[in-house]
Design a protein around this nucleic acid. Structure first.
Lengths: 106, 106
DNA sequence: TGGCTATTTGGCTATATTACCAAATATTGG
DNA sequence: CCAATATTTGGTAATATAGCCAAATAGCCA
């Protein structure tokens, strides 16, 4: 793997990494239904505001969400809805794994 | 977010995390073209065999690849080709980010 | 059997990530 | 301006991840 190839895969991995966290996946799901401010997300997630804020900054840095300040609140919105299409695949993996574990147990 | 919801998102994140590494993404791409043994992948990746082996075990634990021992070699194959569909979305994010950076630079 | 090759596992260190708290910043309204 | 609220940032401790080396394991063949 040469340098150019490696950096391409690193860029991709960076984006995947931004999504590879339960709280961030949850946030993305919420934003799929419409924009939300940090306070709303914080209440839904049930973690410290600073924690949620940092999760949002990770998603923003990856280019997955956008933020817009309105008054004292900051509203986040989903910039790339196509990530939602991944779920069917992820669920497929989960179900296949479940089946496999079942088979092993028999 | 209640316990059940959280564990569902954790399961999903686990799978995403397994893919969120440049080397593992590269490996998945190679396996998309057909099964490969650890030694072949090691040569392509250019890292220690033990490192590649561990990456493969992460992918296997997530249910993304399967392994089959044939003689002294172990061949890995892609169990879930649908992950390849994610690339178009990832590339979209990357291009959008590039555009945004360009716009900021102006 | 004994040596050779392929792979995995254990151990270790360096680095990255996460979560919380506390403090800083920004905006609104009195 | 001051107080109150929303958000971000800095600091820190706990945990997770990644890479390498060395050692263990497994199969093949002379």
């Amino acid at each position: 793997m040469n340098r150019k190839t490696r950096s391409r895969y690193e860029a991709r991995a960076q984006i995947m990494k931004a999504l590879a966290h339960p709280t961030r996946l949850f946030i993305v799901d919420q934003l799929a239904q419409g924009e939300r401010c940090v306070c709303e997300l914080t209440e839904m997630v049930d973690a410290d505001v600073s924690t949620v804020s940092k999760h949002l900054s990770v998603l923003k840095a990856a280019g997955i969400v956008a933020d817009e300040k309105r008054g004292v609140q900051v509203y986040y919105s989903l910039l790339v809805p196509c990530v939602l299409n991944w779920y069917s695949c992820v669920e497929g993996v989960l179900q296949a794994s479940a089946k496999r574990h079942l088979a092993v147990a028999q």
